[in-house]
C-alpha cells in the first residue's frame, strides 16, 4: 500500500470508517504481529498487541500528523510491546504453556521467527522484522529511535547470522 493511500485510509479512520481500519489492519497486521512477537516472544501477547495497536490507531487517528502512516502504526506497536514487557506479561520462553493455547497451529509454522528469537538480539530482531516488511533503514531508525548507522550495521550483522544458521550464502 502506498503512502498516499495509507494517508487517505488514516483520514477515513479519523472519520470513524471501520472499513478503512479493516483495510489497514489486513495490510499491516503481520508486520505488527512480528514486531510484537520479537519483543514479547508470546503469540497470545502478540495478538493482544496487534489488537490494541489497531484500537489505538482507531482512537488516536485524530492525533496523526501526515508523515508516515506505517511508521506511525509500527511505533504504536513497538510502544505497546515495550509496555507489555514492562508489565511483566511476556513469556520468556515458548514453552509448553504457550503451545497449548489457541495459537498452537500457528506456532508450528514459525521456524524462522523462532530462529530469530534464539539467534538475534532484541534490536536486531526488530530491525529484521521491519526490514522484511519493506521499511527502509531510515524508517527503522525513526521507529526504533536508533541511529541510522546503527540500524544498518545491526541489520547487516543480523542477516549474516541468519544466513549462516540457515546454511545459505550471503548475497550481499
Amino acid at each position: 500500500m502506498e503512502k498516499e493511500e495509507l494517508n487517505d485510509i488514516i483520514l477515513r479512520i479519523q472519520k470513524k470508517d471501520t472499513k478503512a481500519l479493516e483495510k489497514i489492519y489486513n495490510d499491516m497486521k503481520g508486520c505488527v504481529y512480528g514486531l510484537a512477537y520479537v519483543y514479547t516472544k508470546s503469540h497470545s501477547d502478540s495478538e493482544d498487541i496487534v489488537q490494541n495497536t489497531f484500537l489505538r490507531v482507531w482512537s488516536k487517528a485524530d492525533t496523526y500528523k501526515k508523515d508516515n502512516p506505517k511508521a506511525w502504526i509500527m511505533t504504536i506497536a513497538r510502544n505497546l510491546s515495550i509496555d507489555n514487557i514492562n508489565q511483566g506479561k511476556r513469556f520468556t520462553e515458548l514453552d509448553e504453556n504457550i503451545r497449548t493455547d489457541d495459537c498452537y497451529s500457528k506456532i508450528t509454522d514459525t521456524d524462522m521467527l523462532n530462529t530469530l528469537l534464539s539467534t538475534l538480539e532484541e534490536t536486531e530482531r526488530e530491525i529484521v522484522i521491519l526490514y522484511s516488511y519493506g521499511f527502509s533503514h531510515s524508517e527503522i531508525s525513526k521507529i526504533t529511535l536508533k541511529p541510522y548507522a546503527t540500524v544498518r550495521w545491526k541489520y547487516s550483522n543480523a542477516i549474516k547470522k541468519l544466513i549462516k544458521i540457515s546454511g545459505g550464502e550471503n548475497n550481499d
Partner: peptide, 18 residues
C-alpha cells in the same frame, strides 16, 4: 538461504501467525 528468502519467510510466518 539467501537474504531475500529469509526476509520473505519471516514475512510469511508473521502474516500467517498474525
Amino acid at each position: 538461504m539467501t537474504e531475500k528468502n529469509i526476509l520473505d519467510k519471516i514475512k510469511a510466518e508473521c502474516n500467517a501467525s498474525a
